[in-house]
Amino acid sequence: MNDAAAALAEQGGDPGLVPRPFEVVGTRRELDDVVTLELAPLDGQALTFLPGQFTMLYLPGIGEIPISISGDPARPERLVQTIRSVGAVSEACCALQPGARIGVRGPYGRGWPLEAALGRHLIVLAGGLGLAPTRPIVTWALENRSKLAGLHLLYGARTPDAVLYPTQLLGWAGAEAANVMVTVDRHSDQWSGRVGVVSDLVPELPFDPALGTAMVCGPEVMMRFSLQALEGWGMAPAQMYVSMERNMKCGIGWCGHCQLGPHLLCRDGPVLAAPQVSDLIGVWEL
């Protein structure tokens, strides 16, 4: 607990919904509408996290939103978050300059079950901005490569201009350690890579489906098709995981906004095993 929170707790206060002040120490424009922020806690206490967890980012007078942590879990001194500008809060986050302050709560939620992949082929299937919450898996996997049979990153973006972290993707693709496949829905002249949806890449994976564990993140339709493709390829649903998205107002099980059927996503998720969502994911307006 930070000093402010401890002081509030002393007063009988409520650290649950009260953010800690952080300072913006770095910004990086990733895409036209996407910025990565590097944040440092004012109290110096690193925000340690598990890949797949998220925080609530708060700007006074504007609002608060859930954002996944996209940094390296082994380097928690800097909180790294990648944000797409889509509305009031995310736009204001993307406009922050070094030295600005931002409120942070968390980390919250259950992350990716990395231990489930030990000794197996780890497949990361990401679509669009879904590469941000899955990047910590790749970072972790590269640092723990000897504990895995294989590492495969299947990434799909809408257009070549929308490919997130391109330099890093090239670096990973060049390394022996990882098998990286990138595809775009619509190509342009400069693109010599694959064209098509990311789930179409699944059958190309060069090993027995029984030896793999898949972690899937992207728009809900992309995840639905990816689960179908993995199952069609021969993988057991129990070896597939997804990160689900719903409105979140608290992150700690108090507000009820994040329900997806029986799950309170902030508490039971956002990462769930495929069998936990297979009956829910196609249901109308659930």
């Binding site: 402010a4 002081a7 509030l8 007063q11 009988g12 206060g13 409520d14 009260v18 953010p19 002040p21 952080f22 708060y58 006074p60 302050r101 931002i102 409120g103």
Partner: peptide, 9 residues
């Protein structure tokens, strides 16, 4: 400054 001042319950 983002330093929160709590309203006690």
């Amino acid at each position: 400054d983002l330093v929160p001042h709590e309203t006690p319950p």
